[in-house]
Simulated scan of single mutants.
Amino acid sequence: MKDLAAGVGYLVKGQRWVLGHGRWLGFGLLPGLITLVVYAGALVGLGYGADDLAIWVTPFADDWSSPWSGLLRDTLTVLVFLFGLFLAVITFTAVTLLVGQLFYDSLSEEVDRAEGGEVPASGLSFWRELWISARDSVRVLARVALYGVVLFALGFVPLVGQTVIPVLGLCVSGYFLCEELTAVALQRRGAELGDRLALLRTRRMLVLGFGVPLALAFLVPLVAVFLMPGAVAGATLLVRDLTAPPAPEPAAPSPYTLSKDGTPVPAQPERGPRSGSV
């Protein structure tokens, strides 16, 4: 639970950071707005066409008696739209990060600089970084699609499909949202996709604490646009925690002490008060 709360804390800290650095918030809205317009059009189209798709893939239900035919197709329509929404939430971050690659890299560097310590740089050209980001995003989205197909199929299970599966879908969305956002700072630190995923697995509750509230917020399209710069800032702060070197262990007390003339002599154990003393 401590890591879960810490993950939420990094999300809040990231939003506070960009609010305190207004120009970064302003510049960060443009990539999200461009992506939002494209996604909104796609979801509207899916909303209008989901019922036709449900009818097309269930020709065997034409001869079913009422209400079973309608119930099957209505359920399938809802699941198709939810699956599309699930993919939109996941891919929105990846596409927005690609559109705003140059800006978000600069934002992440500025967070590192403001927080002090080393400011890592990949040393790669912009186009090379863009290619690596696009390639890794496709690999991550392939994993997400696999999870999505499984969850979509489990959505037909009575009771479980309407209760447990949406929660699992939200957790998957949040986890991979966090992966996409932390990739900005981790890629500057030279971490490959496999290394990034292995690192996130060491602190799953921290990752879910950051990603799940963000996935919920991203269900509201306009909110996603405004939260995006702060999400990158918060993910950078989270990466600083994940990659920080462990605190050194306190040194054991020396068995020797110095006499008045500077000669080391064995340390004498401290003695408590004698019994009966006041």
Rank of each mutant, 00 (worst) to 15 (best):
A231Y: 01
D195H: 14
Q15P: 05
G155N: 05
T257A: 14
V172I: 01
A217G: 12
Q101R: 10
R113D: 01
V119Q: 13
G262N: 04
G14H: 11
D241H: 14
F126Q: 10
S108C: 09
W24Q: 06
V38K: 04
G117V: 11
F86N: 07
V37I: 10
P213I: 08
F226L: 15
M205T: 09
G234V: 05
V8Q: 05
F210W: 04
T35Y: 04
A121W: 14
L98E: 10
V225I: 14
T93L: 01
D52M: 15
Y10A: 02
L146E: 00
V89H: 02
L76V: 05
L227P: 03
F126I: 11
A235G: 05
R196G: 03
L72G: 06
I55T: 12
G209P: 05
S125A: 09
Y48T: 11
V138D: 01
V223A: 11
F83A: 07
A215Y: 15
R274F: 13
I34T: 06
W64E: 10
F86P: 04
G174E: 02
S125N: 06
L72K: 01
P250C: 08
P253G: 06
L197P: 00
V89K: 00
L97F: 02
Q101D: 11
A134N: 15
V37Y: 08
P253H: 07
L72S: 06
C178I: 09
V172D: 00
G20W: 02
I55W: 09
L238T: 02
R139N: 00
W131L: 15
V37N: 10
A6W: 14
Y256C: 12
A217I: 10
L216A: 14
F176C: 01
W17Q: 02
V232P: 00
L85T: 10
L33T: 06
Q187V: 03
L4G: 09
A121L: 14
E249I: 09
V265W: 07
V212H: 05
A251Q: 09
R135G: 05
Y175D: 04
P245E: 12
P213Y: 09
S122G: 12
V99Q: 04
D112K: 01
A6K: 14
W56F: 13
Y48Q: 13
A114E: 08
G272W: 12
L85H: 08
L193V: 02
F226Y: 14
I132Q: 10
V119F: 10
A50I: 08
D63Y: 14
A247T: 12
L177V: 03
T58V: 07
L227E: 11
Q101F: 02
L36E: 13
Y48E: 15
P264D: 13
S125T: 07
R188L: 15
D74Y: 13
M205K: 08
S259G: 15
V167P: 11
R196W: 04
G209S: 09
P245R: 02
D51N: 13
A5S: 15
A145D: 01
T96R: 00
S66I: 13
I165D: 02
R196Y: 06
T243V: 10
G272R: 13
R188A: 15
P248V: 09
